[in-house]
């Protein structure tokens, strides 16, 4: 009887240890860093939405350490991550330009992606200097959301 119990304990402990080890495995980094969101607060966007007028607020989104094929991601628990946000207030000589991400205007500064292959830029003789803020987000499954392979971590 004690032999059977010992055998059962050994198998149970061994199995638990193996599962725990797999559960602590690092996720595969598959998500891009430069996904963008544009909070819809009217005080933080121009009169025609993101990339219009003289003000724009854009935040980085997504995760840098979550694998969308990771079957054990639930065991990793939810971890708060910080995403950076940028608030642009344009000077008199600066303008927002919405154009294809494939064809940025000469000398323009990229503000962020608007989706559908369109990007927001700032043009002007002087460099815009955004103010910075932080927002938190949970690790997210961002499968298929990468739009710039070169920006993967």
């Amino acid at each position: 009887m004690s032999t059977k119990r010992g055998w059962s304990y050994a198998v149970s402990v061994g199995t638990c240890l193996a599962v725990a080890a797999l559960a602590t495995a690092e996720s595969v980094v598959v998500c891009c860093k430069y996904l963008y969101t544009w909070p819809s607060d009217p005080a933080l966007q121009g009169p025609e939405g993101p990339c219009s007028g003289t003000v724009a607020y854009v935040c980085e989104d997504g995760s840098t350490s979550a694998g969308y094929t990771d079957p054990l991601r639930l065991f990793h628990g939810q971890t708060l991550r910080y995403a950076r946000c940028y608030l642009y207030n344009l000077g008199a000589g600066q303008s927002f330009v919405r154009t294809s991400c494939e064809a940025p205007p000469a000398g323009a500064l990229l503000v962020g992606s608007l989706g559908n292959g369109m990007c927001c830029y700032i043009v002007g003789p002087t460099k815009p200097v955004p103010m910075l803020s932080l927002r938190t987000f949970q690790l997210a499954d961002c499968a298929g959301a990468c739009n710039d392979p070169s920006s993967q971590d």
Partner: peptide, 30 residues
């Protein structure tokens, strides 16, 4: 910001080996 890896990640492979050894030992004994 530290990566999402939990604190035990450094013990991953030792735990796997130990678990396999225990299971193998139990099977052999059985």
């Amino acid at each position: 910001v530290p990566a999402a890896s939990p604190p035990l990640s450094g013990y991953r492979w030792p735990l796997v080996v130990l678990g396999v050894v225990l299971i193998a030992a139990a099977v052999v004994y059985r």
